[in-house]
């Protein structure tokens, strides 16, 4: 039995594998999407210029996110896109995402830390064309799920470019989580993901799942799990997804 974050990523992989090649992606069998499924599905839709059929009982925001023509000017939808060329818009976009989150899940400083450090990583390392962030609160389940997805060169691809040795893609993800950085000339770098793991798994008792190309890792307060992903589960780019339970973390204790 895999953790739910991993299962939600697998759900996207099933959706992609079951697509019959037509211009429509049929999602009518799916009534519920977590961000970890929704964002890579959106990436797949955009990359293949697909139209989408959704279940009429699906939440309204899911339909809006999956249909680009509906997405504009829906400021209440907990989803934003980052663009590589418009750095001036980044701060506003992150502020909007933070307003849509709830600081009772981790605290505002922890959430600030998360969104800024991961966005820094996307801009510094990924060479992305499209990147999405979604944050959705589940009050009855007592957690918030925040997902980042970019279609860039991936963590293993970035390591390869900078001639950092790794055994396989899962090993590259493991190295990135443990703080190996492509820009670490003085061992000063590589703290971003490493401290996020510390803050949100040890401090907030949350979970984090990172998938990039053919590797993935799931980390919680229990033993971390490393995944080798076959082609059905390969992701072109990087997906980072967190579940954060209600509570407050003083991040200075985890830096």
């Amino acid at each position: 039995m895999e953790p739910e974050l991993v299962n939600n990523f697998s759900k996207f992989c099933e959706i992609r594998a079951n697509h019959n090649g037509s211009e429509y992606l049929d999602l009518t069998h799916h009534k519920f999407f977590y961000p970890t499924t929704l964002l890579p599905t959106l990436g797949f839709i955009i990359e293949n210029s697909l139209k989408v059929r959704v279940n009429p009982n699906v939440h309204g925001y899911v339909s809006i996110i999956l249909n680009p023509s509906k997405r504009r000017k829906k400021s209440y939808v907990p989803f934003r896109e980052l663009t590589p060329d418009d750095k001036s818009a980044r701060d506003q976009i992150l502020q909007e995402i933070l307003k849509l989150t709830d600081e009772s899940y981790g605290g505002i400083e922890a959430l600030d830390y998360l969104v800024y450090e991961l966005t820094n990583n996307i801009y510094e390392h990924s060479e992305f064309e499209r990147a999405f962030i979604m944050a959705q609160k589940y009050p009855k389940k007592n957690f918030i799920e925040i997902c980042f997805f970019d279609n860039g060169i991936s963590i293993p691809g970035n390591f390869l470019r900078h001639e950092i040795h790794y055994e396989n893609d899962a090993d590259a993800i493991d190295k990135a989580v443990n703080g190996i950085s492509t820009k670490d000339e003085f061992r000063h770098r590589g703290w971003g993901i490493n401290t996020i793991v510390n803050i949100f798994t040890k401090g907030a008792n949350g979970e984090i799942f990172i998938a990039s190309r053919n590797g993935a890792i799931y980390i919680s307060s229990n033993d971390p799990l490393l995944y080798k992903l076959g082609d059905k589960y390969r992701i072109d780019g990087t997906l980072i997804s967190l579940r954060i339970p209600r509570g407050y973390v003083n991040i200075s204790s985890y830096l």
Partner: peptide, 16 residues
């Protein structure tokens, strides 16, 4: 003191 958090996965799982 550049010692970072150590994340040591106990299992490697293949999804295929």
């Amino acid at each position: 003191n550049p010692d970072k958090l150590k994340v040591r996965p106990s299992r490697i799982i293949s999804l295929s």
